[in-house]
Design a protein around this nucleic acid. Structure first.
Lengths: 217, 217
DNA sequence: GGAAACGGGAAGATATACGATTTCGGATAC
DNA sequence: GTATCCGAAATCGTATATCTTCCCGTTTCC
């Protein structure tokens, strides 16, 4: 009988990751091996392995003889993650740009229109979700899988950190939609890759800076 | 009695990583849990955990019910890793630049002179080691630890992949030393961060391109 | 002669067991 | 009242045991 199901270790990994993403396990949440194992109806061994992987990805922090907890991030950490994501996503978008089809661009445009629609009746959570969708269309065709993996990790990490930047600085959403249009424009025009890269990077960095400015008051 | 020694899991992790780095375990090497455990005088459980971490870092590839082997990289993978490292290292260098002291720059310069000294009596392996040292001086002061971590992983990954690019294209070494000087110059002059970033990026990408060109003949 | 079925050994996946370490509440000393 | 010392409970770390899966050489059947 072939294994139709994935390994328990894999299941544990995905389950924990999803819990973190869904913020069931918020930052600082204590991951107790025994209880997770019980919840998932398995022994602790696969759970340990899952946690090791998550540790290597930076989603959880491990302390010898004490245990694992969901990585706790301060202000700085958030900024660092955003700064990094800006760089990685920027180059990924630039590399993907030449491979985007008309239909990709239309899809991105449609998502951006929905984003604009949200501006009136603002919902930070929905906005963030759509926002990610928009960018995903733009970078998914990146030709470098290694880079693409880093982009995904960056997003996962951020989604674990903070529900939504836009909840803190709703004003940023308006500019964001406009910048999306500009980036799409650049891609449609077959602009210089470096120009696209820097536009995408600055777009993210501006969100980060807006957040920073809002905090310092 | 407090634990003066690190955990077995940690020991296994470091040992395997070092073996890969030292190319005792070359690409494709089959990592058999049982024998590693025997070599390190421990049970397989810690070894499994170590391998999971290495898997998450991309150093080993895992296949269900089959086992782990040191990540085998084809031409493409090498190019992807270099491309990524160029981007990451570029921004890290740019971010570090304003924080470099005179003594840092002198140290880098000294290393680069040694590199130039090696040109006459070329030794690709030594050259690669010194080359990494040179760049390490430039990016270590990067203010974003997250980014710095990615740079380190990139280097580790590449060192696992291929002993030395310069062994394939020794001619590149000469240009490389010159470009090092130019980068140092930019930093000393307090050049625009973007300029520094792109110089560092292009420096690495040129090595990659030279390699590619040499392969296509 | 080749394809398919079989079977044994090697290695992986997971469970269970147990000793070690940390944590924390309460008792005791000052 | 506070600080320090115990000890139990919780939890981790690792070893051992068992079951499953895969690999590969051999046999069998067309």
């Amino acid at each position: 009988m072939p294994a139709l199901t994935e390994s328990k270790s894999q299941r544990a990994y995905e389950w924990i990751r999803d819990q973190i993403s869904a913020r069931e396990f918020g930052p600082g949440y204590r991951l107790v091996l025994g209880s997770i194992a019980r919840d998932l109806d398995m022994s602790v061994v696969p759970v340990r392995e899952a946690i090791r992987r998550l540790e290597a990805e930076g989603l959880v922090t491990f302390e010898r003889n004490v245990g694992a907890r969901v990585t706790l991030v301060d202000e700085n950490e958030y900024v660092f993650a955003m700064q990094t994501l800006g760089v990685i996503e920027g180059i990924a978008t630039a590399l993907a740009a030449p491979h985007l089809t008309e239909s990709d661009l239309d899809r991105a445009d449609k998502v951006n229109r929905r984003l604009r629609g949200l501006l009136d009746d603002f919902d930070a959570h929905r906005f963030t979700r759509l926002n990610q969708q928009f960018h995903a269309v733009l970078f998914e065709r990146c030709t470098n899988p290694h880079l693409l993996d880093l982009v995904h990790r960056g997003w996962t990490r951020l989604s674990g950190l903070r529900d939504s930047t836009f909840a803190f600085v709703p004003g940023r959403a308006h500019d964001s939609v406009r910048e999306h249009r500009e980036i799409l424009e650049l891609i449609r025009d077959g602009a210089d890759p470096l120009e696209i890269e820097l536009a995408a990077r600055q777009h993210r960095w501006r969100t980060m800076n807006t957040y920073l400015a809002s905090r310092q008051r």
